[in-house]
Amino acid sequence: MSAVTASATHAGPLRVLLQNRVVTLSIVVLGIFAIAAIFAPYLTPYQPNGLSMRERLLPPSSEHWAGTDELGRDIFTRLIYAGRVSLAVGLGVAALASVFGVVLGILAGFFSRLDPAISRLLDAMMAFPDVLLAIALLAAFGGSLLNLIIALAIVFTPRIARVVRASSLVVRELTYVEAARALGVSTPRILFHHVFRNITSPIIVQATFIFAAAMLSEAGLSFLGIGIDPSMPTWGVMISAGRQYIDTAGWLILFPGLAITICVVALQLTGDGLRDALDPRIRKSI
């Protein structure tokens, strides 16, 4: 057991992450999505909202790589512009919900006195259907991209908070936490170094799920006409608008559907890889 291959142990998490080819590929895919979103205007000669009544519902061709929609807009152009909003929503919601969820979950899990209040609050939030709660919050805040991100982050916070609370309850009882208390280590330091660092795996898993779920929720809200300015294309908007042409012009929903799918799969694979790379016990065996 004490025999150790030095290279595996002393390699940093990043190197271990990149040793896994599937994870490397996923990161490259996500990178392409991000670059396409950032440099959208330079990648296409068309405008995302440039109408052309003569070129309605054209199938994919060399001129329109992904075809055109019912208003003659270039679908490839709309896809990369839509990626800007969809990725921003997913990333923003996953990050914010993680912050809220970790704080609430650790407080509830570690301090038994705070637990009943926090747990009941989370139960109450979970009792509302996701979309209904988001609609209510957006109605209260007013619709904008930032408010949409905040509203969805609040909606998804209980998912993170619940796993964080459950994991903290387990870690709290482990001997190394007691050892830290016996050493006189301060409570904030115990919470961060001993509790938080040992519950990152379920947080990463949940956060990647939320990233994907937030993009889908945003699509649902856009479909209902709540939230972001409808002239701003998102993958969800494109799918919901293209539904009517599913039998005559399938490419209208095929490409945004593929974009969501590829992005979500890449995210989850990256999340899994990240979880393993951050765990020294697994890192050794890779």
Binding site: T175, E178, A179, A180, A182, R197, N198, D279, R281
Partner: peptide, 17 residues
């Protein structure tokens, strides 16, 4: 001024440190 050595050498050391 006072310390403890635990029974279980597996759960008493933080696996991330």
């Amino acid at each position: 001024r006072m310390q403890i050595i635990f029974q279980d050498p597996f759960s008493s050391l933080n696996p991330r440190m």
